[in-house]
């Protein structure tokens, strides 16, 4: 090889090296920002009116997290791992028709339409304001529309031998990209479970809407269970099956990593997640206001549920 071709070869290599570097950065940019993760337009388009004013519940007067924040920052791995995936990738999710099957150890198993489970028009359902406390140490104050789960469970008559209740979420990979993703390690469909006492506690809420809105798949609609004294992942979304069992059912996150996600997962500020502290939480009020506040045992419901957990708290982590 003479010197000229030598020079040409190196020039080509420089082009290749430069292209490789720039190409890598470009690919990075397209993958990370291409889907509008940091999108000003999105925020402007959907911004709630008067979004700097605190919103307050009409019924209870409590301060609420803005609906925009509560509907644009969600964990629903069915749609993807990113907090914006649930709102951005749930457009094709069909909310109707929706049926829930009750089976296992109960006197009257069967399948019911959502309207039957509500038992009244949606607008007449109870509104309850609960703090949604995520295991990731953030929280939001959200108005839930629904009724106590026990009113529904008592209709199907759980048997005395029923010690646990398992909730199975829908499996619909064609409408839920996170279920179809080969990068997700979770075992679909999502399953969560409670003891029968937890499920029958009046706080446990069969939820058909949030902010008076039934059309929010990112929040787990059309039907989810809300368990306000536990970390958020214990409140299963898109529920299609409720099973009464004698043996303790396995739950999705607990199966994924039992060291990090306890089966009970009650909110205990003293018991850290292995990777972060649970002593405080970041209360998200809106896109612009986040406040760090101390977390409370049982997320503030110790009076009503602590009796369910006699002995050392660690065994109910």
């Amino acid at each position: 090889m003479n010197r000229i071709t030598d020079q040409n070869a190196y020039r080509r290599r420089r082009l290749i090296a430069g292209a490789l570097g720039l190409g890598a950065l470009g690919t990075f940019g397209a993958l990370r920002y291409g889907d509008g993760t940091v999108s000003a337009e999105q925020a402007d388009k959907d911004a709630a009116p008067g979004s700097d004013e605190p919103t307050v519940s009409d019924k209870t007067g409590e301060r609420l997290t803005h609906k925009f924040a509560a509907t644009h920052y969600n964990n629903a791995y069915e749609f993807g791992w990113d907090k914006t995936d649930p709102v951005e990738k749930s457009g094709g999710f069909e909310l109707k028709p929706w049926q829930v099957t009750f089976d296992g150890l109960c006197g009257k198993p069967g399948t019911f339409d959502l309207d039957e489970l509500m038992g009244m028009p949606f607008s007449q359902l109870e509104e309850r304001v609960y703090d949604f406390r995520c295991v990731e140490a953030w929280s939001m104050v959200i108005p839930y529309n629904g009724r106590s789960l026990r009113d529904i469970l008592s209709v199907v008559q759980p048997l005395g031998s029923a010690k646990y209740v398992a909730f199975t979420s829908i499996l619909r990979p064609e409408q839920m990209p996170g279920q179809a993703s080969s990068f997700s390690t979770l075992d679909w469909p999502y399953v969560e479970a409670l003891t029968i006492e937890e499920a029958m506690n009046p706080l446990t809420f069969a939820t058909f809407g949030v902010y008076g809105d039934q059309n929010l798949p990112q929040n787990g609609m059309p039907f989810r269970i809300t368990v306000p004294w536990k970390y958020g992942f214990k409140s299963p979304k898109f529920v299609v099956r409720i099973t009464f069992t004698e043996e303790r059912p396995e739950a999705t996150w607990h199966k994924e990593n039992s060291r990090e996600y306890g089966w009970y997962s009650n909110v205990y500020p003293d018991i850290s997640h292995p990777r972060w502290s649970q002593a405080t939480e970041r209360r998200i009020w809106s896109e612009t206001e986040v406040e760090r506040i101390p977390s409370r045992p049982y997320n503030g419901f110790a009076d009503q549920v602590a009796h369910l957990y006699p002995g050392d708290q660690k065994q109910y982590r």
Binding site: L25, F28, V38, Y73, K83, W138, R282, I284, E287, T288
Partner: peptide, 26 residues
């Protein structure tokens, strides 16, 4: 700019921490 124009989404603090981390790595 994204921080000032409030376009970092609902949890801008977390978004900024993740972004600065990822650019350190890049």
């Amino acid at each position: 700019y994204a921080w000032r124009s409030q376009s970092l989404g609902v949890d801008p603090q977390k978004a900024l921490i993740l972004e600065t981390g990822i650019w350190t790595f890049n």
